[in-house]
Amino acid sequence: MTSVKDPLREDVQIEQSYMENSADHNSRCGSPKRGTTLSTSTSSFEALDPHDPNLSRLANTMFQKTGEYLQEELTSTHADYRLLERLNKETIAKYTELKTISSSVAQSLDSLNEKYKKLQPILDNINEIDDSVTKLEQAAYKLAAYSKRLEMKFKDIEKDTKSK
């Protein structure tokens, strides 16, 4: 005997198989709805459409944690900018102090240069006198040496005259 397939019975079996697979899929997702609960498109989201409370809680937690993270990032960035601002102010103050000191040193140097220019003729005179004193000292040493030689000759001549 040949068996005849009943098309109605096949459709029922397919639908039961689909329901079992959907139930299995829903139990894995934990969603009361069949299929995905959220679409990647925001236009298909219905505010009044019931959705998975677990997924909603997780999304809220994610948004809260992301908000906290971004807040902390902004806070730390703001703190970094405040620190940089403080460092810049300190640097400006230090450079202002250094500028004042360098201006004072420049004024002192200019004053010393002017005094040196005024003293230059006197210093040149002192150098000339020092050269003259050095030459005079050398002449005095030569004269002293010559005097000693003369004295020795005089003593030699005196000895010679007494011995004769």
Rank of each mutant, 00 (worst) to 15 (best):
K94C: 02
R82S: 13
K118Y: 05
D110A: 08
E85T: 14
L119H: 03
L112Q: 08
K118D: 14
I92P: 00
A106C: 09
E90S: 11
L84H: 12
V105P: 01
K118S: 09
K89V: 07
K99S: 12
N88F: 10
L119I: 06
S111C: 06
T100H: 06
K118C: 00
K118H: 08
A93N: 08
L84K: 13
K99C: 07
D110L: 06
K89S: 14
K99E: 07
D80A: 10
A79I: 09
S108G: 05
N113A: 11
N88A: 15
E85Y: 06
L119W: 05
L112A: 14
T91E: 06
E114A: 06
L98P: 02
S108M: 05
D80K: 11
E97V: 01
A106S: 15
T77R: 09
A106R: 02
N88M: 11
I92Y: 05
D80E: 14
K99T: 13
E114F: 02
T91Y: 15
A93G: 01
T100N: 10
N88L: 14
L98V: 04
D80G: 07
R86E: 06
Y81S: 04
A106D: 15
E114S: 07
T91R: 02
E90R: 09
K99V: 07
A79S: 14
R82K: 15
H78Y: 12
D80C: 06
V105M: 05
K117Q: 08
L112I: 15
H78M: 10
T77G: 06
T100V: 11
L83T: 13
S111D: 15
D80I: 04
T100F: 02
Y95M: 15
E97F: 00
L98K: 08
V105H: 03
Y95F: 15
K118W: 08
A93L: 06
Y95V: 15
H78E: 10
A93P: 00
A79P: 02
D80S: 12
L112V: 10
L83Y: 07
E114R: 11
A93H: 09
L112N: 09
L119P: 01
R82M: 12
A93V: 02
L87H: 07
L98S: 04
Q107H: 07
L84I: 13
E114M: 02
T77S: 13
S111K: 10
Y116Q: 05
S76I: 13
L109N: 12
A106L: 14
K118G: 03
K94W: 02
N88Q: 13
A93D: 12
S103T: 11
L119Y: 08
